[in-house]
């Protein structure tokens, strides 16, 4: 069973730059053909400062660290048992290519169901931009198959 005393643990913060080519690669990978997501001039014509970061991609830039599953080491959980249970985003400001995002994640809860057959890890993440404004909040639930 995961050590519940780790509830409240703050993961190391990290920062990453939202690069235009990464956004274009994401558009290709998700079948996105709307020019707003690949063409700077189309994005600006639509009123964005630059290519907008798509709605789910705040999650992706959180993986830009040497070990994106460091939290599993902290909790002593095997990666192969991990499933994504829930994902929620609150959008507080726009994010476009060229912005720098800083991630701060806290383990909000750990609980189990079915006598420990399933365990749940809940995290909350604040994503700030280069001006220090919180632009996205993420709430995620991981499910561990034991």
């Amino acid at each position: 069973m995961i050590d519940k005393s780790l509830i409240g643990t703050e993961m190391p913060s990290h920062s990453t730059t939202v690069e235009a080519n990464r956004l274009r690669f994401f558009a290709k990978a998700t079948g996105q053909t709307d020019p707003v997501y690949v063409d700077e001039s189309a994005a600006q014509a639509a009123g964005y400062r630059g290519l907008p970061m798509p709605p789910t991609m705040a999650f992706c830039f959180d993986m830009d660290v040497p070990n994106p599953f460091e939290i599993l080491d902290v909790l002593d959980v095997e990666l192969g048992r991990l499933l994504h249970g829930e994902q929620h985003f609150d959008y507080l400001g726009d994010v476009c290519a060229g912005d720098t995002l800083t991630y701060r994640t806290r383990i909000s809860d750990i609980y189990d169901k079915r006598n420990g057959a399933l365990e749940f890890i809940v995290t909350d993440t604040d994503v700030d931009n280069q001006d220090g404004d919180c632009v996205v909040k993420m709430h995620r639930v991981y499910v561990i198959r034991n």
Binding site: T30, Q32, P52, T56, H84
Partner: peptide, 30 residues
């Protein structure tokens, strides 16, 4: 498949319909 790939498709449905700047919250349970 990555759950977040499926969520990205759902996001595409939303931004095909309204500009992304209209989006305030987006949450799913897999």
């Amino acid at each position: 498949a990555h759950g977040m790939l499926i969520m990205a498709y759902a996001g595409r449905m939303l931004t095909d319909w309204v500009p992304q700047s209209a989006l305030q919250r987006f949450g799913v349970r897999f």
